[in-house]
Simulated scan of single mutants.
Amino acid sequence: MRLTVKSINEAPVILNPENIPPNFTNLECLLLSNNNISYIDEDTFSSNNNIKSLMLYNNNIKSFQPIMKDKFTNLETLVLLGNPITELDNYRIFTIWLIPSLKVLDFQKIKNLERIEGEKLFGKNHDEFNQLALEMLSKSSNNGQLNGNNKQVDNVVKKLSDNEKEELLKKLETATSLEEIEKIEEALKNGVV
């Protein structure tokens, strides 16, 4: 089951239980791009949710939350491109460490070397936060600028018409393999949709 939410206002949004209907217990794919989400309330998701794919592209998430580890135990695909959090040092490695079930982060397949690097930096025990992990949780990015590939992809997406954006979302929703997601990412990087 998929749920797509589209914000109609420009004010920062906190994702909380009021935003997600309680009867969505079998929800596996949640598309929340372009909603100005800045924070995920702890009570939004139960610990035994079935979410496998979470698209938070182009929101306003600036910092990590410990709940990401506890609430998304089935999460395999996460997209945070277009959020200030992606500018934090060690963002990718920490996200991979924080959510061990991830297979794809920001349209890129997670490599075993990245998992090893995460354990070197943040520890082998994912239930305890070492000093560096605690520092990552306390960091917040105030930088609204995007770097390299994120900026390139963001610029391409901004140039798309509403129909092209809708088609891109449909492709992402119906992708059944990592290869399909990688092809979509490569097309975006090359400016071809």
Score class of each variant (00 low, 15 high):
Leu102Lys: 01
Gln65Trp: 06
Asp70Leu: 07
Thr95Cys: 04
Asp162Cys: 03
Asn143Lys: 05
Asn34Val: 01
Lys103Asn: 05
Thr25Ala: 10
Asn36Gln: 02
Leu56Tyr: 05
Lys171Asp: 04
Phe122His: 06
Asn26Thr: 00
Leu105Trp: 09
Asn150Glu: 13
Ile61Ser: 05
Phe72Tyr: 12
Ser46Met: 02
Phe122Tyr: 10
Lys159Cys: 14
Pro17Lys: 02
Ser177Gly: 01
Lys120Asn: 12
Gln152Gly: 05
Ser33Phe: 08
Ile51Met: 09
Asn50Leu: 14
Lys165Phe: 08
Lys158Phe: 05
Ile116Tyr: 02
Ile110Cys: 15
Glu166Pro: 12
Asn35Ser: 14
Lys170Gly: 07
Ile40Met: 03
Ile96Asp: 00
Lys165Trp: 12
Lys103Pro: 01
Ile51Ser: 02
Asn74Ile: 04
Leu30Cys: 13
Asp162Phe: 04
Lys158Asp: 08
Ser47His: 15
Lys139Ser: 13
Asn49Cys: 07
Pro100Ile: 13
Ile85Cys: 05
Leu81Trp: 00
Asn149Arg: 12
Glu135Thr: 09
Asp70Asn: 11
Pro66Ala: 01
Asn9Tyr: 13
Leu178Gln: 12
Gly148Leu: 03
Asn48Ala: 14
Glu76Val: 11
Pro12Val: 03
Ile184Gln: 00
Lys124Val: 11
Leu121Ala: 08
Thr95Pro: 00
Pro100Cys: 14
Val192Cys: 06
Thr44Trp: 07
Asp127Gln: 13
